[in-house]
Amino acid sequence: MYTVYGDYRSGNCYKIKLMLNLLGLEYQWQAVDILKGDTQTAEFLEKNPNGKIPVLELEDGTCLWESNAILNFLADGSEFLPSEPRLRTQVLQWQFFEQYSHEPYIAVARFIQLYLGLPEDRRHEYEKLQTRGYKALDVMEHQLSRTPYLVGEQYSIADIALYAYTHVAHEGGFDLSRYPGIQAWLQRVASHPKHIGMLD
């Protein structure tokens, strides 16, 4: 059985929870409180020297970290990761986009608002994050106005990677009402029979 070290409110951790549920795999959840310094203890740093969640611990004690890397491990050989090289590369393309052009803005704005309560000393940073976050949403809308999922017709880990923080983007101050393609996609992802919510 897998063990996931994570925070239920974290989009990066939610990716792993959603993937495990879609695949019907058993796991146990070990709650980690980043605000209390749980990721900086000697015990946790043995599992991930980078001191971040999520961490997926395998039965033999091997620990995997970086959410999108874990998604690729779990999805290997499943319907959620195409085997055809071009499609597989497009999945990776969207995962890199998520980590470099989406998560640093949408997730951080959400962290400042949801976790920290939007303190005055971070308001300027928060407002700057809005511009770049909306740019990322524009890119997603461009694709999702043309295809039902980010990589064509098939639900994949590209969608899981980007669904995680997009579906709670409003908690970071982002208005999704102007993005019909994204809104339809969010509903499409959530309609999967094995879907599980972030806080379920």
Rank of each mutant, 00 (worst) to 15 (best):
T166K: 02
S145D: 12
T166M: 00
D200C: 01
A69E: 04
L162P: 07
E79C: 10
K194A: 14
F80T: 04
N68Y: 03
K135R: 15
F97D: 00
H195C: 02
E125G: 01
L129Y: 11
P49D: 07
D33Q: 13
L20Q: 04
W94A: 01
A169Y: 03
L58K: 13
A169C: 02
D200E: 15
P104H: 08
R178V: 12
G181F: 02
S156N: 09
G152I: 07
L144N: 05
P180W: 12
V189P: 01
E98F: 05
Q99V: 10
T62Y: 08
R122C: 04
L22I: 02
E141H: 12
K47V: 00
Q130I: 13
G152F: 11
R132S: 15
Y5N: 07
L23N: 09
Y8A: 15
G197F: 04
R86S: 13
T39P: 03
V91G: 01
L87H: 06
L92A: 14
W65E: 05
Q93I: 04
H195R: 10
R122W: 12
G6R: 03
T3S: 14
L22Y: 10
H102A: 02
S10R: 05
I53T: 05
I157C: 10
I106A: 09
M140W: 13
T166D: 09
L129P: 04
A109G: 04
L116M: 15
R122I: 01
E153G: 11
P193W: 06
Q30H: 15
Y149R: 08
A75Y: 06
I16H: 02
S78Y: 01
A107Y: 04
P54I: 00
L35W: 05
N21V: 01
P148S: 10
I196R: 11
G37S: 06
P82S: 08
V108S: 09
Y27P: 06
E26K: 12
V91T: 00
L81K: 08
M198W: 02
R122F: 13
F174W: 00
D138G: 12
E141N: 11
T131D: 14
N21P: 00
I53L: 05
Y155P: 00
P85C: 12
W65Q: 09
E125Y: 07
E127A: 04
A107C: 03
E120R: 13
Y105W: 14
Y126K: 12
I53S: 04
G172Y: 07
L137Q: 10
D38H: 09
I182E: 00
P82E: 05
S101N: 15
Y179A: 05
Y105S: 06
P119I: 13
D60V: 08
